[in-house]
Nucleic acid binder design. Structure first.
Length: 214
DNA sequence: ATCCCGAGGG
DNA sequence: CCCTCTGGAT
């Protein structure tokens, strides 16, 4: 298992690789960010950004989306995938924001998770990116990278990954570290054919060490 | 554990 | 063709 000192060293290297890591979902308001993040489940940010301009042009806020026709929303987000459940979830989320939350997003993880389609990961992303509230969202990239670097055991759950990262990284760095790990996973330590031979982190990585031998 | 589900990359 | 994508609900 990787030591804390070595992991912080790796984070420094990754920070140099991606000095401008940031959320890549487009949105003009916290509400739109919430919807975009819900839509991003098992989908690429690029794919979400392709669909949301038309969606937000027609339904810019919770008041309008709450009254939307589901088949219309489905057709607007169809290219993203998982569109039946996502259409239902974002309309219901808009309704609940209107009826139960006074039209405002709650700045609270547990309350956000009461909204359909919003789980731990989505709540963390929205709190961090929309409100600057510290948190580490563990998505497919963060999980894969953390396991390859042996920050956690291979069998670790997403919650265990999240807890470990929060323990090792100072709270003031949680949100930016999250984005750096995403960028590292999305553009460099990719799921398929990771760029190990070009990787500045290779000296610290058992996973890449194994790959680079052959 | 399984389902949802289209687009893009290799 | 097969794999992956800022997962969540059942």
């Amino acid at each position: 298992m990787l030591s804390k000192a070595n992991f912080l060293k790796i984070l420094d290297i990754i920070a140099e690789m991606f000095p401008r890591a940031h959320g890549e979902l487009r949105s003009d308001t916290p509400f739109q960010m919430l919807i975009a993040v819900i839509l991003s489940a098992q989908a690429t940010d690029k794919g979400v950004n392709k669909a949301t301009p038309a969606l937000f042009a027609k339904y810019p806020d919770s008041k309008s989306l709450a009254l939307a026709d589901i088949s219309d929303v489905e057709s607007l987000i169809k290219t993203i995938g998982l569109y039946h459940s996502k259409a239902k979830n974002i309309i219901r989320t808009a309704e609940m924001l209107e009826t139960d939350f006074g039209g405002e997003l709650p700045h609270d993880k547990d309350l956000l998770q009461k909204l359909p389609g919003v789980g731990r990961k989505t709540a963390n992303v929205v709190l961090g990116d929309a409100f600057g509230i510290p948190g580490i969202a563990v998505d497919t990239h963060v999980e894969r990278v953390s396991k390859r670097l042996q920050l956690v055991k291979q069998s670790a759950t997403v919650t265990e990954v999240e807890d470990k990262l929060m323990k090792v990284v100072p709270e003031s760095e949680w949100v930016v570290t999250h984005h750096r790990l995403i960028f590292f996973g999305r553009y460099h330590c990719t799921a398929r054919s990771p760029k190990c031979t070009l990787c500045p982190v290779l000296p610290y990585c058992k996973f890449g060490e194994k790959l680079s031998i052959q």
